[in-house]
Design a protein around this nucleic acid. Sequence first.
DNA 1: ATGAAAGCGCTAACAT
DNA 2: ATGTTAGCGCTTTCAT
Lengths: 390, 390
Amino acid sequence: MPPTRPPSRLATPADSGERAARRGHGRITLRDVAEAAGVTSITVSRYLREPEVVAADTAARIREALAATGYLPNKQAGLLASGRSNIVAALLPNLANSIFAETAQGLSDTLQAAGHELLIASTGYSLEREEEQLRALLGWHPAAVVVTGRRHAPDALALLAAARRAGTPVIEIWDGQPSGGLQPARAERFAQVGFSHDEVGRAMAEHLLAAGHRRLAYVDSGVAEDYRAHERGLAFAAAARRAGAEVAVLAAPLGDPFNAGREMLGRLLAPATPARPAAPAKRARSGGSEKATPLFTAAAFANDHLASGALLEASRRRVSVPGRLALLGFGDFAWARQLDPPLSSVALPRYEIGVAAARALLDALSGQRAAAPQTLAWTLVARESTARPR
Amino acid sequence: MPPTRPPSRLATPADSGERAARRGHGRITLRDVAEAAGVTSITVSRYLREPEVVAADTAARIREALAATGYLPNKQAGLLASGRSNIVAALLPNLANSIFAETAQGLSDTLQAAGHELLIASTGYSLEREEEQLRALLGWHPAAVVVTGRRHAPDALALLAAARRAGTPVIEIWDGQPSGGLQPARAERFAQVGFSHDEVGRAMAEHLLAAGHRRLAYVDSGVAEDYRAHERGLAFAAAARRAGAEVAVLAAPLGDPFNAGREMLGRLLAPATPARPAAPAKRARSGGSEKATPLFTAAAFANDHLASGALLEASRRRVSVPGRLALLGFGDFAWARQLDPPLSSVALPRYEIGVAAARALLDALSGQRAAAPQTLAWTLVARESTARPR
DNA sequence: ATGAAAGCGCTAACAT
DNA sequence: ATGTTAGCGCTTTCAT
């Protein structure tokens, strides 16, 4: 006979004595329910997992006992015993940034609906913190893992590879399938759910070229870690150059991005005459013909914040947009299309990325096939800020 | 002797036969590490938890074994055995809303730094979903629980109360201590980390009154669930009336809040003459003297989005702000202070609420005293949109 | 249809 | 300083 235990936890939740050995924490267990229902715990366990297998009258008694005790299954015990987890671990650079916040919401909505739990951690764009957090999250033996982007610390990559080898689906979000050239070579390939930032950069250039602009600028994010913005910039510049246009990539200063955008407007209007001669050499990497003083007629930005800053400053200075300078953002935030003129921008599948990633994981978990990569659609929304003059 | 197991999982990860009984999932366990280090598993376990207690040379061997095997502790097993959890469960209405997203970030940053894990779920402002999610999260036996607001389904309340009784700190965020009158009576009191929305509503009214306005409007959120906005509105109206001013509370239409704000500008400028006589009766609940046609000179809004919509529309219609109409927002979003004129607003401790809640929980967990309630500071940031004319 | 036994991977308690 | 034993609460396997 197994070690006796007090007949009912319910009667005396703080029952003591009897056994000096380790004891429960006073919580209702399967066994309490079983006692109340007059069966053994395995029957209750079975009822919980496959109710149809239990006799109708037994089931009824169990249902009663469940309600009477207020039983809450202990998930760690269940997972430990079954080796299965319904946790999905997600690593995002930042939860406050509305880009990732909406992705988190998409993940959360879709996973919750499927009965999964979301264990979330933010990395602050740091590969080190990502690795550290990944290690912590993997200790939960999650059913699946979501990470952001395709840049990871070597050890993190190894952990992800090991997890996948053990049958845990791994998905990288927010980047598209690696296109040639710019990507670091890497043995491990995880399914990607996102879009190609190269393509977006190219489309941004083409949009401005199509409006007749020949002197383009890309205002890059000053945040070094935002490699997606840098990638878009490279693709933008390449496309512009390919079309025979002049193009420069300028890095925005750090700090409040709206103010950075305002400041950049000045540089865009008079790029060859730095306001403060004493200031450090400007970081413009001019492309195209180096000689001509580039008076830009159009600028694309790494994000809507920078672009809106420039737009607002233009409005303040009575600089005509798009007449004197066309402005194109990235992200299509609700407030940016309210400005005057409304900002043209690239609408992103922020929420959809979360949903698609979750779906891919759920598919992989049920079907046992690998998570499928997915390229999601974005849209360049042309508004007045890049309208063709005329 | 305990059931024999193959000498090393490392050598033959897929070793079979021997025992038909349930077997591990091929993962590295404490025992594998112990074998590699020539000790028993408890010593490794000990090393992991209190390294200083283990002999130096043993420790060195364990360290090596740990590295060689790539061991990752199984958290469910650890928690089950110890009865301790480092999970904090958080329930937020929405992760995409930047208000809660920043709170989530504050929670995440602070908890991660303390070695805790964040299990997060969103409720979509639905009390039912909150209860359901709460039930799921409590199954993890979290170390602490964070919920949003003080309105919960009865059963959810019971679950929270039971959790607290079992020693799990529970914190409600985003609301302040219940002030009299408006709050539903309730036996259970959890620690609150937030601020009083009554006080904010009052301060908003006082700010406008101090600028000399006597005909005030509060534009409430059309979202029924946003009871905090409604509370601010009630307090706003009460304060205005107390000061002898005229005041009305108008409900914004649903849908895009910027456009709703734009639409509300029309109502504010000509509140007595509904544009479309055929439209359903407007939802304005006029307070103060009912007779006078209230031509508002100032309006406070439930959020910056609505306020900015009105501000932008005013600018489009060449209605002077604050000359003809002063506008006051709530939330103090970065884009709103970039407008022309910059929007006065109430700056909220969005991130700080997360940090403070996490700290309170950590304190409660280490000190074993109850989580302490906290009132956090907000600031009414006066900008040009409510500047005194003259 | 229900139960007994064993075990998931770890840690607490009690040795030595 | 290290090991032995029992047990956390559940599920699997194998009876009955």
